[in-house]
Amino acid sequence: MTFLFFFIFAIIALAGAAGVVVLRNPFYCVLSLVVHLIALALLFLLLEAQFVAVAQIVVYAGAVMVLYVFVVAYVGGGDKPDQLWSAGTRQKALAVCFAVAIFVELAIALLGTALSALGTDGAKLSATYGTPAEIGKLLLTNYLLAFELASMLLLVAAIGAVALAGRRGGIAEDEGNLSPRHGLVHTPSPAATGSMAEGVSGYGVTTPLPDPQFEGRELQQPARVTAEDDR
């Protein structure tokens, strides 16, 4: 039974990972990563790490991915349709070569290791293995320093993110030029940005991708405002 579950979850996780690499629209990439993370959490459950599995779903698939979705909706900027696979075939071939080399190295390292316990199901587990109680005890006794340093790191990262993305000196001039209603509804955006609106309307699946002549940062004309709209 474990065998069956392992293969199902492993295949879902690998498919999700492949989706992140292959899909063109960043919005779909994020969704694919969510699928991958959930499958991975189930693999953690198979390894009896209950607390980490739940933390993975709540923190990763929940909080971190929501952050990603917001930024994708804000920035968009998918790879230009003509660019992902055609441009730089040499680069692509090199990248695949390097990736295969990494995999071969890892496989040699894993299979050639002298750790004989790798071929077993693992040590006999205590009843408390992987429970929140045990993790909490370890974090606050043996690994207290790591715990405190991690929380300091999070604080520094939060301050850094605010400092990086914060809007200093009010709204930039060219941002302020957009009239409020265009800013809210008809924000001009590059083609194939992978925004939420595009993702929901099946952009790139049910509607064709735009001409490659839209350069990344060139803006589409905003929808024309007719006289009726102005009233």
Binding site: V21, Q91, A95, V96, F98
Partner: peptide, 13 residues
């Protein structure tokens, strides 16, 4: 190892 490889390929591509 497979997931790591896919991730590395993605970073490069």
């Amino acid at each position: 190892a497979m997931i790591f490889t896919l991730g590395a390929a993605g970073v490069l591509i």
